[in-house]
Design a protein around this nucleic acid. Structure first.
Length: 418
DNA sequence: CTTCCACTGGAAGATCTGGCCT
DNA sequence: AGGCCAGATCTTCCAGTGGAAG
């Protein structure tokens, strides 16, 4: 028997379960699409067009709906000689300011023309805006600018002020910019500065989370294409839908669950995908998210995490911040690394709390002992150690903590059971 | 009802990195 | 080379907090 054999295949074609897959019809969003179409119609009619903002949590179909509408729009615009339409798409996922968004837009616009990209730092903000207006001006006609996940820019919203007014301010001549903003945050609009609020978001479309029924309806056609016949147990799709509906109402989450369940079934060389695979997939995805969160911490973040892991290994949790800070300083000394202020460590702890890595308990013992926080790990110690072991800097220390924990019998729990 | 502990967390600004400009 | 720019990380300062003790 050879070392490699073809696995039994549960997947017929995994593409419909890919994040980038664009279905030919969009389900359960009829009302939203209709609104969307009405909002874009003026472009075809050569009338002034309002900016459009889409609000809804991740995985509620905003991006897919936009891709769908724009491809139709682009297609239909070619039917009319007097409609000159261009579109630019920028995902603001890793962009935290208007400045960076402007740079990304310039680079996106230049990409299509083989011009040089510009650097993400070094220019003044106005300089980048000027370059951006130049590029937009060169396009002419109606320019639809899609800013995906625009809420990442937070309060730095200058670009939302500048772009819609580019024409009235004389920065561009023969161009009609239309901004399509996509936000995961319902409150994004409320947090905009007043001057931006007035100009923007004349048309708003809300994308509510999907319920379990809707998720089933989204999953079913994809599941049919992605898997061979009779591979999926009857309760697999409903369970994926139920898990995702309960958690976030995100189609993306539901689809990922389904794919992961399929992959687990395939890896186990199983004929069918079962409810059990879905449950395992759910655990697996949660675990991955936490691992990623831990890996992406800075060195200082790792040091703080390391200090907390040490306390956990000594079975000395929850720890109050004072004691944790002492431990942290000792760890830094030992590693010959700089330590940061107590205040800063509190910030790191609160970040880790946001990521779901640790738990915080508020204590208040009044006049005798005052008010303070206590912390403990919210993920298995073993998982933390695994991450620390993979960094050169903390490797040695992680080994020490591991043996300490071993002495205290705190590692029995397998990583897979959380 | 007041006191008061031991922090917490907001604000402002310093320092450092990487990169552009002339 | 020297000045300038934006962002990330960090420091310093300190008003504010809330429940047990008095």
């Amino acid at each position: 028997m050879g070392m490699f054999q073809r696995d039994r295949q549960v997947f017929a074609d995994a593409e419909p379960l890919d994040d980038s897959y664009e279905p030919e019809d969009i389900r359960e969003r009829d009302e939203e699409l209709e609104k969307y179409q009405r909002a874009l119609q003026p472009i075809i009619d050569n009338r002034p067009t309002s900016n459009i903002f889409l609000y809804g949590k991740t995985g509620t179909g905003k991006t897919v709906a936009t891709k769908f509408m724009l491809s139709h729009l682009e297609n239909d615009a070619t039917e009319y000689d007097d409609v000159d339409l261009s579109t630019v798409w920028v995902s603001c996922e890793n962009l935290s300011s208007s400045y960076q968004v402007a740079v990304a837009l310039v680079n996106e616009l230049r990409e299509s023309q083989d011009k040089d990209r510009i650097s993400t730092t070094g220019y003044s903000q106005q300089r980048v805006f000027d370059i951006l207006y130049e590029e937009i001006d060169a396009l002419g006609g109606t320019v639809v600018i899609v800013l995906d996940e625009i809420d990442n820019i937070g309060h730095s919203d200058d670009i939302l002020y500048g772009l819609p007014r580019a024409r009235s301010n004389g920065y561009v001549d023969d161009v009609r910019p239309v901004i399509v903003g996509i936000s995961n945050d319902f409150q994004f609009r409320d947090n905009l500065s007043p001057k931006v609020k007035d100009t923007l978001a004349e048309k708003e479309i809300l994308f509510p989370p999907y319920d379990a029924n809707q998720l089933r309806s989204i999953l079913n056609p994809r599941a049919e294409k992605a898997f061979h016949d009779d591979v999926l147990d009857d309760d697999v799709v409903p369970l994926c839908a139920a898990f995702a509906a309960q958690d976030t109402g995100s189609a993306r989450q539901a689809i990922r669950l389904l794919r992961e369940a399929g992959e687990l079934a395939q890896a186990a060389d199983s004929d069918t995908v079962t409810e059990e695979h879905v449950r395992d997939a759910q655990d697996e995805l949660e675990k991955n998210q936490l691992y990623e969160g831990m890996q992406e911490l800075t060195t200082q973040g790792h040091a703080v995490l390391c200090a907390l892991a040490y306390h956990q290994a000594l079975d000395d949790v929850p720890v109050r911040s004072r004691d944790l800070y002492e431990r942290y300083v000792k760890i830094c000394d030992r590693l010959d690394a700089d330590s940061v202020s107590e205040r800063r460590v509190r910030d790191h702890l609160s970040d880790m709390n946001m990521l779901g890595l640790i738990s915080v308990y508020e204590r208040n013992e009044g006049l005798s002992a005052g008010r303070y926080h206590e912390y403990e790990l919210d993920v298995p110690l073993k998982a933390v150690l695994e991450v620390l072991l993979s960094t050169t800097r903390f490797e040695e220390l992680a080994n020490i903590i591991e043996s300490t924990a071993d002495d205290n019998n705190l590692l029995q729990s397998d990583i897979s059971d959380y």
